[in-house]
Design a protein around this nucleic acid. Structure first.
Length: 873
RNA sequence: GGGCGGGUAGCUCAGUUGGGAGAGCGGUGCCCUUACAAGGCAUAGGUCGGAGGUUCGAGCCCUCUCCCGCCCACCA
């Protein structure tokens, strides 16, 4: 027996523990079975579950549970990511509360602090995934900095280095002065900001005249080593090669010509600061200009900035502007909107900065990665994201992988203190003459190896052999470049095979303003709170139902409440069934012993099974959810249960409806289990079916069976539904209280309808509350004062003299008549169009002809009834 | 500057080879009918952003256009 009310909290904890105890989540290589594997997009180890995770992991869990039920050997690999900069920032912030800094602690102690923090809070998100119901193989859980994965990272680095795919050198990189590290191009976000454009006067040497230059970053002038104009610019051609004097600094710089200058912009003269601007860097190289770095690692002006040394870059900007103004070098200031690069971790403004960094040569790796998507070895779903992928891969730039932070995989390179010789090695170099590289690797370097490092690579393990390549990757579009593309490159490079066959890209969960939810923005809605309030199944179902391909999920509390009600509905339906069925169901009853309703629901359940399978196959998660929602609520509960109630409650001996109820419920539960694992298991546990599996998790996934398809029953039952709905409608129009019984006459136009109605008489009468006064036939003579409706070539009459208001009844019929007339005219017009009858497919024409006949028939009957009514009046 | 996605009922959104406009929530009316008031029954509400085109037929295909969002890009 089920409790009166579903209690998600108790149920969820109970079954999750049970599943784990029974080791259902375990992924075990089994050559006799088909394989299905997933690797989790590893969440940040210090993070907590947000809605994005909830969506991402719900979808993965659906796929995992679905395949398990289909008999696959399933492995869903879980784990967490060390998230270098992000985690280091978190711990640094914590330390600063105690007035400590990482510099004080020193590298070794600081890293120890992070490990301590990881041990303490690293389990949070994993526990939260348990709450969600994620069926990961937790025994296999990995962490990107654990021993095995560190070996994998080192192996990968060494091999790339040996293959000349890694190099080190001085380059202009994106520098975050707050984090004190270089970041990759991807880690810079651009933000439209309102800034200023300053026009500065650069005088020719020993002359009054000079040139006007526009800049958004005046402080960089300290590092100017030239001015440039377009070689064809008539205004300036004559000055090319002349020297100018750099204001405030006094340095002598040349005017050069370079194609990249846009003569239309500003004055057409541009200052060249090779050490602090990517364009200028390139221009500087082309023209062999000196590079003058004017910044320190923490964003202050360095010794090259003369009297501005020591000032923060923005203080220096203010000071330089005021100095320029005082010395009349500043000619004009204009408002100017422009894109400013900010650090995606701490939102500090990024500076282009000259430094020695490690890079991966990505072009050679990208080629095969592009091919593997082009030739279909990897499918990206929805397909539109392929374009995004190709676009980025075709224009891929070398990847700066070194980070000047402490938390991460330290680069396995050693420098000879004397000679500077570089050794990259799998083993630590202990020779005192060598000093290890202090930089660590970009976090995404280890993430790129995730689909195989987690299975034991570089060792050859049975898991790696069996579960790689993984079946499907489920992830958000925000990390296609960061992660998906790099996994593909790494998989092809190290495993010689793609890391996954399907990539399902889901939408982002946004807040009510359509904003991306993220920790740094602080707009995260806590899924755990929702789980506490409404249960994990409600949350999971909501996210699934809203996960339409290519569209963001805007989560609303209302929506979740709606699907919580759905849980409740399922619970109550199951409660009703279990309350009334005591005997165990053994087999599917013979079709001949079934009622119309029985045959109808079996046929419908069968179709739904097919639809569900198709939806999941195509990653149409929202279709999967709403198909089940509609079927369960509006067919199974609203019609089937209601139709068979008397058989159940009165315990009709001959009725097989109890069996059908249980069997269809069992089918519903199994179809629903991937998305609602807990409530389905709780009900399954109580289901009286002989020989059922002890857990729904290991029960058989329903299969579509053409045997059960029964279009005749579907048609017949839909007639019953129409009749009942029509009578209910008339009752409503007449304001008859739902409890009151009414008389009813049905005039049919054929024998089939008559016998169908007679067979289903009890059901129709009960569901529409018709009393003893009731008759059916082809020659019904209705009394004058009636309320009537026409449907499917039948006329339904409610003879209730006292209740009928002639005016309103007349109006109602007139309205219907007008609608019918309109439809008839439209259909006639369509069918008399020769082009239509010649060119449209036969089925379409027939359908329209039939419709016309129906509508004409309806029209005729409506007008007859109307006439009678008005005559009476 | 390039690319992508979206504009469908009051709100949030489905709508898969072009052929009857849908759901959830909300609204309205009637009902505590023995699974469920987190419920039942009924009902109102849309020129599918705009214009043009292809077609016998367009929410769906093509062109143009107006809004909104996102991604990429070195515009000083």
């Amino acid at each position: 027996m089920l409790e009166t009310r579903y209690n998600p909290k108790v149920t969820e904890a109970k079954w999750y523990a049970d599943w784990q105890k029974k080791e259902y989540f375990k992924g075990i290589p089994d050559s006799k079975k088909k394989m299905f594997s997933l690797v989790i997009p590893p969440p940040n180890v210090t993070g907590s579950l947000h809605m994005g995770h909830a969506l991402n992991n719900t979808l993965q869990d659906i796929l995992a549970r679905w395949h398990r039920m289909k008999g696959f050997s399933v492995c869903w690999m879980p784990g967490t990511d060390h998230a270098g900069i992000a985690t280091q920032n978190v711990v640094e912030r914590m330390l600063s509360l105690e007035n400590k800094s990482r510099e004080e602690l020193g590298r070794e102690n600081f890293v120890k602090e992070i490990w301590k923090w990881k041990e303490k809070s690293g389990g949070t998100i994993i526990n939260q995934l348990h709450r969600l119901g994620a069926s990961c193989d937790w025994d296999k859980e990995r962490f990107t900095m654990d021993e095995g994965l560190s070996i994998a990272v080192r192996e990968a680095f060494v091999r790339l280095y040996e293959d000349d795919l890694i190099y080190r050198g001085d380059y202009l990189v994106n520098w975050c002065p707050r984090c004190g590290t270089a970041v990759s191009d991807l880690e810079v976000e651009f933000e439209e900001q309102q800034g200023s454009l300053w026009d500065i006067f650069y005088p020719f040497e020993n002359e009054e005249s000079g040139l006007i230059v526009s800049t958004t970053r005046p402080e960089t002038m300290l590092g100017d080593t030239a001015l440039a104009v377009h070689p064809q610019d008539e205004r300036y051609k004559k000055f090319i090669g002349r020297k100018l004097q750099l204001p405030l600094v006094g340095r002598e710089i040349p005017l050069i010509a370079d194609d990249f200058v846009d003569p239309e912009f500003g004055s057409g003269v541009v200052k060249i600061t090779p050490a602090h601007d990517p364009n200028d860097y390139e221009a500087g190289k082309r023209n062999e200009l000196p590079q003058i770095n004017i910044l320190t690692e923490d964003g202050k002006i360095n010794e090259n900035g003369g009297k501005y040394q020591g000032l923060d870059r923005f203080e220096a900007r203010e000071k330089i502007i005021s100095d320029l103004k005082n010395l009349s070098f500043l000619k004009q200031v204009k408002d100017h909107e422009h894109n400013v690069g900010i650090c995606y971790r701490c939102e500090t403004i990024i500076e282009p900065f000259l430094s020695k960094q490690w890079f991966i040569r990505t072009k050679p790796l990208a080629e095969e990665a592009i091919r593997s998507v082009e030739n279909g070895k990897i499918r990206i779903i929805p397909k539109q994201w392929e374009n995004t992928y190709f676009e980025w891969m075709h224009n891929i730039k070398d990847w700066c992988i070194s980070r000047q932070i402490w938390w991460g995989h330290q680069i396995p390179a050693w420098y000879n203190v004397e000679t500077g010789e570089v050794i990259v090695s799998r083993e630590d170099i202990t020779d005192q003459n060598y000093r290890r590289e202090t930089d660590v690797l970009d976090t995404w370097f280890s993430s790129a190896l995730w689909p195989f490092s987690t299975f034991g690579w570089p060792k050859k393990t049975p898991d790696l052999d069996y579960f790689y390549p993984t079946s499907t990757l489920v992830t958000g579009f925000d990390i296609i470049f960061f992660w998906v593309a790099r996994m593909i490159m790494a998989g092809l490079k190290f495993m010689d095979d793609v890391p996954f066959k399907d990539v399902y890209i889901h939408a982002l969960v946004r807040d009510e303003d359509g904003q991306k939810m993220s920790k740094t923005r602080g707009n995260v809605i806590d899924p755990i709170e929702i789980i506490e309030e409404s249960g994990a199944d409600s949350l999971r179902f909501t996210l699934t139902a809203m996960a339409a391909q290519g569209r963001d999920v805007r989560l609303s509390e209302e929506r979740i409440a709606g699907y919580r009600n759905f849980c409740n509905k399922i619970w109550n339906a199951a409660r009703f069934i279990l309350l009334n069925v005591e005997k165990e169901v053994e087999t599917i009853p013979e079709s001949s012993s079934l009622t119309l309703a029985d045959r109808w629901i079996l046929s419908r359940a069968n179709s739904v099974t097919r639809e569900v399978e198709k939806s999941l196959d195509e990653y149409r998660f929202n279709d999967f959810a709403s198909t089940l929602y509609q079927f369960i609520w509006h067919e199974f509960c609203d019609w089937y249960i209601e139709a068979v109630k008397p058989n159940i409650i009165n315990d009709e001996i001959d009725s097989k409806s109890k069996d059908i109820l249980v069997l269809v419920l069992s089918q519903i539960l199994r179809l629903l289990h991937p998305v609602m694992p807990f409530i389905t298991e709780e009900i399954w546990d109580k289901l009286p079916i002989k020989g059922k599996k002890s857990s729904i998790m290991v029960s058989e996934w329903p299969k579509y069976d053409p045997e059960f398809e029964n279009p005749d029953s579907e048609e017949d039952f839909s007639i019953i539904i129409d009749i009942v709905s029509t009578i209910r409608n008339l009752r409503g129009e007449l304001n008859i209280s739902p409890g009151q019984e009414i008389p009813c006459l049905i005039k049919v136009s054929n024998q089939e309808h008559e016998s169908l109605i007679l067979r289903e008489e009890e059901t129709i009468k009960r569901l529409s509350k018709i009393g003893s006064e009731w008759s059916i036939g082809t020659d019904i003579q209705p009394p004058k004062l009636i309320s009537s409706a026409v449907i499917r070539n039948m006329q339904i009459f409610i003879p209730l003299e006292g209740l009928i208001d002639i005016d309103s009844e007349t109006n109602r019929l007139k309205k219907q008549l007008a609608e019918t007339e309109k439809t008839v005219l439209a259909l006639k017009k369509k069918l008399s169009n020769k082009e239509f009858t010649q060119k449209a497919p036969k089925e379409v024409i027939e359908k329209n002809e039939e419709k016309l006949k129906d509508e004409q028939n309806r029209h005729e009957k409506l007008s007859t009834n109307l006439n009678k009514l008005t005559k009476t009046g």
